[in-house]
Design a protein around this nucleic acid. Structure first.
Length: 794
DNA sequence: AGCACGCCGACT
DNA sequence: GTCGGCGTGCTC
């Protein structure tokens, strides 16, 4: 039998199957993790198929080892990896590896082993092995090569991983119930521990076998257990135990009564769950409309018919409260996969899923690869979130993977959001997805009042032009009333663009209607779509005022200003810098929730899903920064952020207020977020997208050409563009090549080409071909990266 | 990606 | 003469 193996070598030339002979008697199947000889070393690999014959001309090698008892990958995941690799231009091995917990990643070591007696006697080998990767001393290296040459030592290649199964001891009764009863009468009166154990055995006989942890929890010592084993009272064996993260839910929650809107959604979805239809639903519901309850009840339905459920949430909202809600409903059947788990816990949760011991999986992006069998429902909450697209290789979008899996399992997929992504909403419009809207808020609270503050015509409270007098007054009012304030600093726009403080004008590209980005290094304003460039202005091209600024504000600066304006107020700052340490995110939120601070100042991460009853004012320091980013979806992201953050005000009985500071109060993304009117925004933004030939009217692919040599990168970029131009047809639009925003990264020069198309059947094959060709000419050190439907084109 | 093989410059 | 620089090509 021949096994087809994908080896753990991420390179263009090795991105295919290699055939190996399977030695007799090995338990192996599709999805098995194996160790194989590859060249003169050993690597990890995954079995993706079997065959009788091989096309390979040379002598096939035997595979060396099957690593796991149970294949870590299912047939489904192996098939998915093949399709996905093709779709997203990633190496298949990279995808297979992202499907698994990180502890299963191979760790390769080269060690030096003495073979001659002479070498074995050398103090140099003190002990037994010598890790070659840890030797850097030139003297030692010299010695090593000498030993190798003389045949005194050999290099051995090791493949290891960090996957450690936690073991425990399971104690099984060896005697009958009567036997223990009898022993209990015989045992000495002062042998308290033994009596305790025997009593438990007698009284709770049915609860056995018990693990060591269980018995230790009952205050029965290890010594007692050991002697019980010796006396033949108990049998013991080693078993795996799971590092189960704490179950957060205290008691089981019961399904809540649904209102008529929720009921209709529930009915529509459960029907397809029962009929096993791979229908995608777009569940559009305002904040507080009770989407979660619909999720929970439809999951119940999937479980009821003997299937499993997968639920994705953004990492940021995978909070303990969220997890607790699901656990409260489904108890021990829930497995949670998120980054707050230790690697070991994650591995254990993953194994529980793989073994079919968890029926409901809740997790962030990568949980879309959870090895669940027989999926009956998939849910993606906050489907508009950009984090569902991985921004490094392999660049997969969890939504696309979920759609693939829903087809495979014939099960429905729910995409839920208050502000659906334009693409999903448009698909719903076309009938590809089924649209379900929830308009009522479950507790029928009023939406908070939203005020726009036009920064062009306002006084600033401090000297930093960050906080207007209006906002400052509103903050002071809350401080006086001992209520809390959330301030959002929109950092999405840290790329420098030009804004006129007098008229609000933003310098834009004449061809693309997108803002130009300042390149300090080259001293120009440049468009990253088409490559247009012009000089950095010294006055506003619109009103000729000299009060122009290049924007990019920091949380620290605002924090200082708050300190000046409200010296008595306690401010908590939350951004990438203060939340880098594990657990600090929760810590800050808990502190704020307990009223330890008056103001929470933060970036995007405070906009989502937080619920603090004492917060009555939400202020947005700068609504504009994301607006003029050189991305076609800048308006969408801005609207989304403002709408989400507005939902943070007045969550309980106190009335909430939202103040949005902006230089562009008339821009539709901002004006409509004041009204919290998604549908109107959708209609308007679709017009803009249509006029600009952007998604969802066009598909996009971003091709990035990288080389250490700028000329080679540029030449290849133009080369690729030429081929694309020749092969693609109307109405396809090819923009660029243009240097990337960060035109040089790790000493690699980057050029980008954006392809916008409606239908190009050959495009995928063509791009694969171009990518191969470019990278085969290795002398230039060229790499071509392809990002389908990029989130950011910068 | 590694690793070996191979062909040219500066050293004991 | 040899050590070692990194260009080239291969891995079932």
């Amino acid at each position: 039998m021949i096994a087809q193996v994908i080896v753990d070598v991420a390179a263009r030339q090795t991105d295919r199957v290699f055939d190996y002979l399977v030695p007799e008697g090995l338990e192996i199947s599709i999805g098995s993790r194996v160790i194989v000889p590859f060249g003169n070393r050993k690597v990890q690999g995954f079995v993706v198929g079997f065959s009788e014959k091989s096309q390979f001309q040379g002598q096939l090698k035997d595979l060396l080892l099957v690593v796991d008892e149970m294949p870590p990958l299912t047939k489904e995941l192996v098939a998915l990896s093949a399709d996905l690799a093709q779709q997203i231009f990633a190496y298949r091995i990279s995808i297979l590896k992202t499907m698994l917990p990180s502890v299963m990643r191979a760790n390769y070591r080269k060690i030096l082993v003495p073979v001659s007696d002479r070498a074995k006697a050398m103090p140099f080998f003190a002990g037994d092995v010598l890790d070659l990767s840890k030797i850097s001393d030139p003297h030692l290296l010299k010695l090593v090569s000498q030993l190798l040459k003389n045949g005194d030592a050999e290099v051995e290649y090791l493949v290891e991983d960090k996957a450690k199964k936690k073991m425990t001891v399971l104690y099984t009764p060896l005697l009958s119930l009567e036997g223990y009863q009898e022993l209990l009468t015989k045992v000495k009166k002062n042998a308290v521990q033994q009596q305790k154990l025997l009593t438990d055995l007698f009284e709770n006989f049915a609860a056995y076998p018990k693990t060591r942890e269980q018995l230790e929890g009952q205050k029965i010592s290890l010594a007692t257990l050991n002697s019980a084993v010796k006396k033949g009272w108990l049998g013991q064996k080693q078993v795996e135990s799971y590092r189960k993260p704490a179950v957060l839910a205290k008691e089981k929650s019961q399904p809540k009564k649904l209102n008529d809107e929720q009921e209709a959604a529930y009915e529509a979805i459960t029907q397809d769950v029962q009929e096993r239809k791979s229908q995608t639903f777009l569940l559009e519901g305002v904040t507080g409309s009770g989407k979660t309850e619909v999720y929970l009840q439809t999951i119940s339905e999937a479980l009821k018919i003997g299937r499993t459920a997968l639920m994705l949430v953004p990492e940021i909202s995978l909070t303990p409260q969220m997890v607790a809600q699901v656990q409260a409903r489904f108890g021990k059947e829930v497995a949670v996969l998120h980054s707050a788990l230790s690697e070991g816990e994650r591995y254990d949760e993953w194994r529980r899923i793989r073994r079919g011991q968890a029926k409901v999986v809740v997790g962030a992006r990568s949980a879309v690869f959870a090895p669940l069998d027989n999926i009956g429902l998939i849910i993606i909450d906050e489907e508009h979130e950009g984090t569902y697209k991985q921004d490094k290789n392999p660049r997969y979008h969890a939504r696309d993977v979920a759609i693939w899996r829903s087809r495979y399992h014939h099960c429905p997929l729910i995409l839920g959001s208050a502000t659906p992504s334009l693409g999903s909403r448009a698909r719903a419009q076309k009938g590809l997805f089924k649209l379900i809207t929830l308009k009522k808020r479950a507790k029928s609270q009023a939406l908070p009042r939203v005020d726009l503050i036009d920064l062009k015509h306002v006084q600033f409270a401090g000297g930093q032009f960050d906080i207007s007098v209006n906002l400052a007054e509103a903050i002071q009012k809350r401080l006086d009333r001992r209520e809390q304030v959330i301030l959002l600093l929109n950092r999405r726009g840290f790329a420098n663009f030009m804004l006129c403080r007098n008229c609000g004008y933003v310098l834009k590209c004449p061809n693309c209607d997108l803002s130009l980005t300042m390149h300090k290094d080259t001293g120009v304003m440049q468009c990253h779509y088409c490559g247009h460039q012009e000089a950095i202005p010294t006055f506003c091209p619109n009103c000729h005022d000299r009060q122009i600024r290049f924007l990019g504000t920091g949380t620290q600066k605002v924090e200082e200003e708050l300190g000046e304006l409200f010296p008595a107020a306690k401010v908590l700052r939350m951004d990438v810098d203060t939340t880098r340490r594990k657990g600090s995110y929760e810590k800050i939120l808990t502190a704020f929730g307990q009223g330890e601070a008056d103001i929470l100042l933060g970036t995007q991460m405070i906009a989502k899903g937080l619920d603090f009853p004492n917060v009555t004012l939400v202020g947005v320091i700068n609504a504009d920064t994301g607006l003029w980013l050189p991305d076609y979806n800048a308006s969408e992201k801005t609207f989304e952020l403002l709408t989400q953050v507005a939902g943070r005000a007045g969550r309980a009985d106190k009335e909430g207020q939202v103040m949005i500071q902006t230089y562009n109060p008339d821009h539709y993304a901002i004006a409509l977020s004041q009204k919290q009117d998604y549908e109107l925004f959708y209609a308007k933004e679709m017009q803009v997208r249509r006029a600009g030939n952007y998604p969802p009217y066009f598909y996009t692919v971003l091709v990035t050409i990288a080389s250490k040599n700028e000329q080679n990168a540029a030449r290849e970029a133009f080369n690729i563009k030429r081929v694309l131009m020749a092969q693609l047809h109307q109405p396809t639009i090819i923009l660029g090549p243009a240097p990337a925003t960060v035109s040089r990264l790790k000493n690699q020069y980057l050029y980008q080409i954006l392809v916008k198309y409606k239908k190009e059947d050959k495009l995928n094959a063509l791009l694969h071909q171009l990518q191969d060709q470019a990278q085969e000419i290795k002398k230039y050190g060229l790499t071509v990266e392809i990002d389908t439907e990029p989130e950011r084109i910068m």
